[in-house]
Design a protein around this nucleic acid. Structure first.
Lengths: 225, 225
DNA sequence: CTAAAATACAAACGTTCGTTTAAATCGAAC
DNA sequence: GTTCGATTTAAACGAACGTTTGTATTTTAG
């Protein structure tokens, strides 16, 4: 089954699994090629270098996810022309593709931890890569959120999107963690449960009144009084 | 100033900064000792190994943070005997100590990225360490949240705490990320702003009605109808 | 002041790393 | 069947890694 795939693809599969378990730095090309049943030089032949291989591993999964996200967002925006778009629809468009790729039936379970770790990886190279992958998606979704939440100041909106994305990353990267600590209450999430819980969580956070510091509250009270 | 500190402490400071920038694996003992102005063998003399050094770097910051968290939680719980404890007080007790250590005036700005990355680090050793650090804190706070939110089912509570902690980690680890992408709208957070935004976000999420799947909603509708 | 313990140092250890090279093997086109 | 490009292979390269060793040097204690 796996050994029928090309060396190129077997290397991508093995690298994805090992990167997820051990991290990028700790995973040697020797371990990858051994797991893929390939020669040591195969990585440098099919991909130019280890860094290019990392990029290829991530792009293979993230590009389809982001394409689906934008397609689903287009559908939501087209569906409600003029009126503010459906908030839950935007949240699902952002969350379902990545949850399917991470927790879906045909998904590689290792990919979840890998995807959730990207944003906090050390080193400029990898952060820049993830940055370029997510930038167009982030811009489109930010504008959609702004349309759906016209009363929320932009700075508060950015904060909440930032925090909600962090919750999503953590859900992808560290859910085994909470599984152990919760005495079986929390179980490895499936797509629908993760989606339901994250959307419920994020919807409530986004719909909350704008945060106001004590200072702002005081000046507001003075203006009102 | 720095060169007046002991070699032991200069190594901890240098290691903390380099670990935050480059990660644990990519930071060599040679780079640490060079930055600390110490001999190459100093790490293996003052600490036993590189792994023990990593543990020491984390414990130096996290132990005081967790002690303060528990003290503040005790104060909140004592203040409201019998009645459900103040939710905002619990949230502040959990968030303020780590935000002070990460964004405070005398804080090492590198520590924020380091702290936010721990939960998603690959490899069992480091995850187990962070696990043991946070376990007693997590248990105490979970019971406090359960008291403050008596109507929320435990499984939903675990989910929301999990997601909220993810938001906190991401805020610590990847806020430079959002600074770049937001065209100056989002700026490097200070303690009070981070606290205000995270508490606002998390309070709203925790107070939301329990998530219900379509299946659960349908059976509920049938029972009501 | 001196003996002993603690710390610092230079040098080297064996190992593993990513990458490269050159030859060997394979596969299809003609 | 031969040729040519694509792929695989074994072997080696230099560099960097964590750690250890033996010896200075400094600090502490009596």
């Amino acid at each position: 089954m796996q050994s029928e795939a090309t060396t190129h693809d077997r290397i991508l599969d093995a690298a994805e699994a090992l990167f997820a378990e051990q991290g990028f730095e700790s995973t040697s090309i020797r371990a990858i090629t051994a797991a893929a049943g390939a020669n040591l030089a195969a990585v440098n032949y099919h991909f130019q270098s280890k860094e290019t291989l990392i990029h290829a591993v991530l792009a293979r999964r993230l590009d389809p996810v982001n394409d689906t996200r934008l397609s689903m967002l287009d559908a939501i925006l087209a569906q409600s022309d003029g009126a503010p778009p459906d908030l839950d629809g935007i949240l699902h468009a952002f969350a379902r593709p990545i949850f399917e790729a991470a927790f879906g039936l045909e998904a590689n379970p290792a990919f979840a931890r890998l995807a959730g770790r990207i944003s906090s990886e050390p080193g400029d190279s990898l952060r820049k890569l993830a940055f370029e992958h997510i930038r167009p998606v982030a811009h489109r979704f930010f504008r959609a959120f702004a349309l759906a939440l016209p009363d929320l100041p932009p700075v508060d909106l950015i904060w909440r999107i930032h925090l909600s994305i962090g919750a999503m990353f953590h859900l992808l990267a560290a859910s085994d963690f909470i599984c152990e600590i919760s005495n079986g209450i929390f179980q490895t999430p499936d797509v629908e449960t993760a989606l339901l819980q994250w959307v419920t969580h994020t919807r409530a956070a986004l719909l909350a009144p704008a945060a106001k510091s004590n200072l702002q509250q005081q000046s507001q009270l003075k203006a009102a009084g």
